[in-house]
Computed example of a mutant assay.
Amino acid sequence: MTIKMKNATAMLLTTLLAGPALAATCDVEIEANDAMQFNKSSIAVPASCKQFTVKLKHVGKLPKTAMGHNWVLSKAADAQGVAADGMAAGVDKAYVKAGDARVIAHTKVIGGGEADAVAFDVAKLKAGEAYAWFCSFPGHSSLMKGTLALAK
Protein backbone atom coordinates (compact mmCIF):
# COMPACT_ATOMS: atom_id res chain seq x y z
CA MET A 1 0.00 0.00 0.00
CA THR A 2 1.41 3.39 -0.95
CA ILE A 3 1.66 6.33 1.46
CA LYS A 4 -1.05 8.17 -0.51
CA MET A 5 -3.41 5.20 -0.15
CA LYS A 6 -2.66 4.90 3.58
CA ASN A 7 -3.35 8.61 4.07
CA ALA A 8 -6.57 8.42 2.06
CA THR A 9 -7.70 5.35 3.99
CA ALA A 10 -6.92 7.06 7.31
CA MET A 11 -8.83 10.20 6.26
CA LEU A 12 -11.83 8.16 5.16
CA LEU A 13 -11.85 6.17 8.40
CA THR A 14 -11.59 9.39 10.46
CA THR A 15 -14.48 10.94 8.52
CA LEU A 16 -16.69 7.88 8.96
CA LEU A 17 -15.99 7.66 12.68
CA ALA A 18 -16.52 11.39 13.25
CA GLY A 19 -19.78 11.49 11.26
CA PRO A 20 -22.12 10.50 14.10
CA ALA A 21 -20.35 12.84 16.51
CA LEU A 22 -20.94 15.77 14.16
CA ALA A 23 -24.68 15.12 13.84
CA ALA A 24 -26.99 17.50 15.69
CA THR A 25 -28.12 16.30 19.10
CA CYS A 26 -31.77 17.21 19.52
CA ASP A 27 -32.07 16.42 23.22
CA VAL A 28 -30.41 17.12 26.54
CA GLU A 29 -30.46 15.47 29.95
CA ILE A 30 -30.56 17.69 33.02
CA GLU A 31 -30.27 16.56 36.62
CA ALA A 32 -31.78 18.33 39.62
CA ASN A 33 -30.89 17.50 43.23
CA ASP A 34 -31.94 18.04 46.84
CA ALA A 35 -29.56 21.03 47.13
CA MET A 36 -31.67 23.08 44.67
CA GLN A 37 -29.19 22.73 41.82
CA PHE A 38 -29.30 21.81 38.15
CA ASN A 39 -26.18 20.17 36.72
CA LYS A 40 -26.22 22.49 33.67
CA SER A 41 -26.46 26.24 33.30
CA SER A 42 -26.83 26.59 29.54
CA ILE A 43 -28.29 24.74 26.58
CA ALA A 44 -27.57 25.27 22.89
CA VAL A 45 -30.35 24.02 20.62
CA PRO A 46 -29.16 23.20 17.09
CA ALA A 47 -31.19 25.11 14.49
CA SER A 48 -31.22 21.94 12.37
CA CYS A 49 -33.49 20.19 14.93
CA LYS A 50 -37.23 20.15 14.30
CA GLN A 51 -38.05 19.09 17.88
CA PHE A 52 -35.87 19.42 20.97
CA THR A 53 -36.37 17.23 24.05
CA VAL A 54 -35.35 18.04 27.60
CA LYS A 55 -35.09 15.04 29.90
CA LEU A 56 -35.23 16.05 33.57
CA LYS A 57 -34.08 13.64 36.27
CA HIS A 58 -34.31 14.30 40.02
CA VAL A 59 -31.23 12.61 41.48
CA GLY A 60 -32.11 13.51 45.08
CA LYS A 61 -34.16 11.54 47.59
CA LEU A 62 -36.71 14.08 48.88
CA PRO A 63 -40.35 13.84 47.71
CA LYS A 64 -41.81 16.40 45.34
CA THR A 65 -43.86 17.98 48.15
CA ALA A 66 -40.63 18.93 49.97
CA MET A 67 -38.09 19.40 47.15
CA GLY A 68 -39.94 19.09 43.85
CA HIS A 69 -38.40 20.32 40.63
CA ASN A 70 -39.61 21.07 37.14
CA TRP A 71 -38.08 22.63 34.03
CA VAL A 72 -39.81 25.66 32.52
CA LEU A 73 -38.72 27.54 29.38
CA SER A 74 -39.67 31.11 28.46
CA LYS A 75 -38.11 34.21 26.97
CA ALA A 76 -35.63 35.63 29.48
CA ALA A 77 -37.69 38.82 29.75
CA ASP A 78 -40.75 36.77 30.80
CA ALA A 79 -39.06 34.42 33.29
CA GLN A 80 -39.72 36.37 36.49
CA GLY A 81 -43.40 36.86 35.67
CA VAL A 82 -43.83 33.23 34.63
CA ALA A 83 -42.22 32.06 37.89
CA ALA A 84 -44.39 34.39 40.01
CA ASP A 85 -47.60 33.35 38.26
CA GLY A 86 -46.52 29.71 38.52
CA MET A 87 -46.19 29.86 42.29
CA ALA A 88 -49.80 31.07 42.49
CA ALA A 89 -50.93 28.25 40.18
CA GLY A 90 -49.94 25.62 42.74
CA VAL A 91 -48.55 22.12 42.66
CA ASP A 92 -51.65 20.67 40.93
CA LYS A 93 -50.74 22.72 37.84
CA ALA A 94 -46.98 21.98 38.12
CA TYR A 95 -46.43 25.58 39.29
CA VAL A 96 -47.22 26.83 35.77
CA LYS A 97 -50.17 29.16 35.17
CA ALA A 98 -52.72 27.37 32.97
CA GLY A 99 -52.65 28.61 29.38
CA ASP A 100 -49.67 30.91 29.95
CA ALA A 101 -48.60 31.87 26.41
CA ARG A 102 -45.20 32.99 27.74
CA VAL A 103 -44.31 29.37 28.57
CA ILE A 104 -42.65 27.65 25.62
CA ALA A 105 -42.34 24.25 27.34
CA HIS A 106 -42.37 22.69 30.79
CA THR A 107 -42.13 19.36 32.55
CA LYS A 108 -44.26 18.18 35.42
CA VAL A 109 -42.99 18.55 39.00
CA ILE A 110 -40.94 15.52 40.03
CA GLY A 111 -39.47 14.28 43.31
CA GLY A 112 -36.40 12.27 44.21
CA GLY A 113 -35.75 9.34 41.88
CA GLU A 114 -38.34 10.50 39.32
CA ALA A 115 -37.91 11.73 35.77
CA ASP A 116 -39.94 13.54 33.13
CA ALA A 117 -39.34 14.85 29.63
CA VAL A 118 -40.78 17.54 27.41
CA ALA A 119 -40.33 18.12 23.67
CA PHE A 120 -40.96 21.42 21.95
CA ASP A 121 -40.98 22.74 18.41
CA VAL A 122 -37.65 24.44 17.64
CA ALA A 123 -39.51 26.78 15.25
CA LYS A 124 -40.80 28.55 18.40
CA LEU A 125 -37.24 29.82 19.01
CA LYS A 126 -35.70 32.80 17.25
CA ALA A 127 -31.99 33.35 16.63
CA GLY A 128 -30.61 36.12 18.83
CA GLU A 129 -33.49 35.92 21.35
CA ALA A 130 -32.56 35.39 25.01
CA TYR A 131 -34.34 32.42 26.61
CA ALA A 132 -34.32 31.32 30.24
CA TRP A 133 -35.18 28.03 31.89
CA PHE A 134 -35.81 27.53 35.56
CA CYS A 135 -37.56 25.50 38.24
CA SER A 136 -40.84 27.19 39.17
CA PHE A 137 -41.29 25.34 42.48
CA PRO A 138 -41.76 28.17 45.03
CA GLY A 139 -38.44 29.77 45.91
CA HIS A 140 -36.34 27.72 43.49
CA SER A 141 -36.14 29.97 40.40
CA SER A 142 -33.57 32.33 41.93
CA LEU A 143 -31.02 29.46 42.17
CA MET A 144 -32.23 26.87 39.69
CA LYS A 145 -31.97 28.56 36.32
CA GLY A 146 -30.09 28.63 33.08
CA THR A 147 -30.01 30.05 29.58
CA LEU A 148 -31.01 28.56 26.25
CA ALA A 149 -29.99 29.75 22.80
CA LEU A 150 -30.71 28.70 19.25
CA ALA A 151 -27.35 27.61 17.79
CA LYS A 152 -26.51 27.86 14.09
Score class of each variant (00 low, 15 high):
Thr147Glu: 15
His58Met: 10
Lys124Ala: 15
His106Glu: 00
Val118Gly: 11
Phe120Lys: 07
Ala83His: 09
Ser41Ile: 05
Ile30His: 06
Gly112Ala: 10
Thr53Phe: 10
Ala10Ser: 12
Lys55Thr: 12
Lys61Glu: 13
Val122Met: 00
Ala101Gly: 04
Ala79Trp: 06
Ser48Ala: 15
Leu143Ser: 08
Thr2Trp: 06
Ala8Gln: 11
Ala123Thr: 13
Asp78Tyr: 08
Val122His: 07
Val122Pro: 11
Val54Arg: 06
Cys135Glu: 00
Ala123Gln: 06
Ala10Leu: 12
Lys6Ile: 08
Ala89Gly: 10
Ala32Met: 04
Val59Ile: 15
Met144Asp: 00
Ala149Gly: 05
Pro46Asp: 10
Ala23Gly: 09
Ala130Gly: 01
Ala132Arg: 14
Val45Ser: 03
Gly146Asp: 12
Lys152Asn: 11
Cys135Pro: 03
Leu17Phe: 15
Ala88Met: 11
Leu16Ser: 06
Gly90Lys: 04
Ala89Val: 02
Ala10Trp: 03
Ile30Met: 06
Lys75Ser: 13
Leu17Gln: 10
Ser142Ala: 14
Thr15Arg: 06
Tyr131Met: 10
Val59His: 03
Met144Glu: 04
Gln37Pro: 01
Pro46Lys: 11
Cys49Lys: 09
Ile30Val: 15
Lys152Met: 07
Ala35His: 08
His58Arg: 05
Ser141Met: 07
Asn33Met: 01
Pro46Val: 01
His140Trp: 02
Cys135Phe: 01
Val91His: 15
Gly111Tyr: 09
Ala115Asp: 08
Ala35Thr: 10
Thr147Met: 02
Lys61Leu: 05
Val72His: 07
Ala115His: 12
Gly146Ser: 09
Met11Ala: 15
Met36Ala: 14
His106Asn: 15
Leu16Ile: 10
Gly60Asn: 09
Gly60Tyr: 05
Lys126Met: 00
Val109Cys: 14
Ala119Glu: 10
Ala119Tyr: 03
Ala32Asn: 02
Lys124Leu: 11
Ala18Arg: 12
Gly112Thr: 06
Leu22Asp: 08
Gly68Val: 03
Gly90His: 01
Thr65Ile: 11
Asn70Arg: 03
Gln37Met: 10
Ala94Trp: 12
Lys75Val: 00
Gly19Ala: 14
Lys108Phe: 00
Met11Cys: 09
Ala83Asp: 09
Phe134Tyr: 13
His69Gly: 04
Glu31His: 10
Ala117Asn: 05
Gly90Asp: 07
Val54Ser: 03
Ala119Asn: 06
Ser141Pro: 05
Asp78Glu: 13
Ser42Asp: 14
Ala21Met: 13
Val28Glu: 12
Ala35Tyr: 12
Ala76Pro: 02
Ala44Thr: 07
Ile110Val: 15
Asp85Arg: 11
Tyr131Leu: 05
Leu12Gly: 09
Met67Ile: 02
Ala127Lys: 14
Asp27Leu: 00
Met1Ala: 11
Glu129Thr: 15
Ala84Leu: 04
Ser136Met: 03
Leu62Gln: 14
Met87Gly: 15
Ala47Ser: 14
Gly60Trp: 05
